[in-house]
């Protein structure tokens, strides 16, 4: 290796490390802040190493009004969104993958367009509609909004998954005596399952992270992010840091689990 080449390699490594620090250090800091005692958070300058780890800040946050309820609501809404989005989205994704039908191009275009619809445009009128139908300030209202938001991506992801299971396999199952439903359940579904699980996690994450709509559609049945957002102005810094960590943690798990699918889903299917 020439000296120049060696220098280049070193520069590349250094650049990677620098970027990783930029991306990683804030995560370390929020964890550090949220896991410090209230006293050490009041110091200045703040210690940069975990000299005094404590669960005080986190437990105070968890015991604050609305936080436990927010957790439960977030989970309810997230799981409900997953179920609804899959119930509605998987059949549509299957249709897009397998059938040629009139208006298919238009349908796919609409799917892509809806992804460009700002959430804010839907939330306020939906609040009106839900007030009229008695759904306002329920987890169902947020669930419906999140289902709508997750639906286009669910259809696109599942369509890509079903395209990956060759149609000849289904035909083979039917030749050997399976009904269309049996062919789907015995041959397609088992192979599509990991991908469908990925789509489900995607929907859950979308719901877990969505703030604005959840805030607009509820008053008391806040999801966790909505609860944190609406109490932001009146809360101490410690509360905000703890809230930050509580919101970030699922993301770490999510990305770790989904690494295999990241490039396919965000990079290709959903662009």
């Amino acid at each position: 290796m020439s000296a120049r080449r060696r220098w280049e390699r070193a520069a590349i490594q250094a650049a990677c490390v620098a970027i990783t620090l930029f991306m990683g250090v804030p995560l370390y800091l929020i964890a550090l802040a949220a896991l410090s005692s209230r006293d050490s958070l009041n110091q200045f300058p703040l210690p940069l190493l975990p000299t005094d780890p404590s669960t005080e800040t986190m437990s105070t946050f968890l015991q604050s009004t609305g936080v436990t309820g927010g957790f439960i609501n977030s989970l309810t809404v997230g799981l409900g969104t997953v179920v609804l989005a899959l119930l509605v989205g998987v059949p549509a994704g299957y249709a897009v993958a397998r059938y040629a039908f009139r208006g298919k191009d238009t349908y796919q275009l609409i799917l892509l367009l809806t992804r460009a619809l700002p959430i804010v445009v839907l939330s306020v009128p939906l609040a009106r509609i839900f007030l009229d139908t008695g759904l306002y300030d329920t987890t169902y209202a947020v669930m419906l909004l999140h289902t709508a938001l997750a639906l286009p991506t669910t259809v696109l992801i599942t369509a890509a998954i079903f395209v990956g299971v060759s149609h000849e396999q289904e035909e083979a199952a039917m030749i050997f005596g399976a009904s269309p439903l049996q062919a789907f359940l015995r041959v397609v579904a088992p192979q599509a399952l990991p991908g469908i699980a990925a789509a489900a996690m995607f929907a859950f994450m979308l719901s877990w992270n969505e703030v604005l709509g959840a805030t607009v559609l509820t008053l008391n049945q806040r999801t966790l992010p909505a609860q944190v957002l609406t109490t932001l102005a009146d809360s101490p810094l410690a509360y905000r840091f703890a809230g930050g960590l509580a919101l970030v943690l699922p993301a770490l798990v999510f990305i770790a689990v989904m690494r295999r699918y990241l490039l396919n889903m965000w990079g290709t299917t959903l662009r």
Binding site: I19, V211, F241, G244, L247, I255
Partner: peptide, 22 residues
């Protein structure tokens, strides 16, 4: 490196704001 760089994909804008608030 790639794992660290894509973590924010799953982080909400509210959480990101709180992270940088610290």
């Amino acid at each position: 490196h790639f794992y660290v760089w894509v973590i924010p994909l799953a982080i909400s804008d509210l959480a990101a704001g709180l992270v940088w608030l610290s």
